[in-house]
Amino acid sequence: MKQFFKKHWMDILVVCAVVGLLVFGGIEIGDRFSFNKKWTVFVRYFVKNNGYKELLIGMKNTALIAVVGLAIGIVIGTLIAVIKVIPPYKKPTRYAQTVCNVYVAFFRGTPIVVQLLVGYYILLPLMGIKLPSVWSCVLIFGLNSGAYISEIMRGGINSVDPGQMEAARAVGLPFPVAMLKIVVPQAIKNILPTLGNEFIALIKETAVVGYVGAMDITKYFQIQGDNSYDYMIPYLVMALFYIIVVAAIAALVKLMERRLAKNERH
């Protein structure tokens, strides 16, 4: 623990500074804008009108979209990465690789908001799929992060010694089995820290799901602002909320990174 503080005092300092700035800066400005009254209003809406229950729903949805989206992204990303590293001797392989390239180009080349709008209001209804907006977001965020993770995963696969694949093929394992049992586990170990960062990015990106009517943390505070005719406190609290969550996950990622580094040494 002591070591942890020694190593991360910079990060902790930055987080404290930002939090302090938000709180005290908020209060200082707030006094000029009758902070106390607004705070009372916020608390009343939050506690007395059961606002916290909706915040819990918002948190649940944000977590759901980020976590399940990441899981879908890892599956899709791994699949695309594996397809992309197959030696392109056969025609079907090349077709599949072209499809993957188009997929990645599409999802990396358009804003996530556009993907949500097009997916939720046009493509899903066109395909006759009726999903609650949260699950539409899960799906679209999963497809989106799949494109990004495929690139990360490809780097991970390329970082694994080619001798591992050779040895696996030499004992008679088919390519997909060798990939799944030998190469991909080692690739995932190599890219775990990067995946952690991808997860953080994903959490922050979910803030736009309100565009398609999904209730997440951002949307909750927006609604609270709408209802109470005051946006200052809700938005400040919202920013605080995100930074705490993100800092906590970033710390976890760091911890994991150090664990892995330790394992390397033996």
């Binding site: 010694d161 001798g163 591992q164 050779e166 040895a167 696996a168 030499a170 004992v171 030998i182 586990p185 080692q186 170990k189």
Partner: peptide, 13 residues
């Protein structure tokens, strides 16, 4: 057909 490599290539995981 068994094969043995210069770099051993044991499965690291």
């Amino acid at each position: 057909i068994g094969m043995v490599f210069q770099q051993f290539n044991l499965f690291n995981n």
